Computed example of a mutant assay.
Amino acid sequence: MTYDGPRVPAQYAPGDGCAVALDLRVAVCPGLTVSVAARLRYHTADPYAVFLDNHTDLATPITWVFARDLLATGVHGWSGIGSVSIHPGVDERRDSVFITLSGEGSSVVLRAPAERVRTFLARTESLVPIGRERTHLDLDGLLRRLYEGGAASPGP
């Protein structure tokens, strides 16, 4: 039997974006970790954000949205406060990136393969270089939708 990576249901992936499947490790208790299939997604219509879809036993994934800069900084050093923080592994965990998600009185620490996260970030930069995000925003369209009383989001 061969292992082809985590089994992740297909997600909405518009043309101007990228995604990478991840096999996250979650510490349930000391000495016991479980695998969680996940996916990092990026789309040029929302150039400052990345989406982390966690696929648990639910029909639809739990999605966290946070800044791409937070992830890019967290690959190399401690980044973030509040509901999302990210930092690289140390010593024997240098091949990992740790993502802490907090909300509603609980927290979880996810361990992601650092190389997969770096690959994802490189793909996002090939679409929109860091520092050039504002050139991919349709501010006129956003203002028009707000003025007309429509949704502020750029897409479905």
Rank of each mutant, 00 (worst) to 15 (best):
D91G: 15
L58H: 13
V84T: 07
R144A: 12
D16K: 13
L40H: 00
S102Q: 05
W78E: 15
D95N: 06
I81K: 14
V36F: 11
S35V: 14
E148H: 09
A114G: 02
R132Q: 08
R68K: 04
T56N: 07
R145T: 10
V117G: 00
L40P: 00
V128Q: 00
G149N: 06
D46K: 00
G77N: 11
H43K: 07
G17R: 03
A67P: 02
A152K: 01
V117C: 06
D140M: 15
L58R: 14
I86D: 02
G105L: 14
T100Q: 07
A151E: 05
G149Y: 08
A67L: 04
G141Q: 12
R41G: 06
S96W: 13
Y147S: 15
A59Y: 14
G82N: 07
G149E: 00
V34Y: 14
Y48S: 01
G31L: 05
P156I: 05
D138M: 01
S96D: 10
L101T: 03
D95K: 15
L146N: 04
A27H: 10
D95H: 11
S35L: 12
S106T: 11
G80C: 03
V26N: 08
G31Y: 07
V117A: 03
Y48H: 06
P47T: 03
Y3E: 12
Y42D: 01
P156K: 07
A151Y: 00
D4I: 10
E148N: 13
R68Q: 01
V90K: 15
S102Y: 06
R144Y: 08
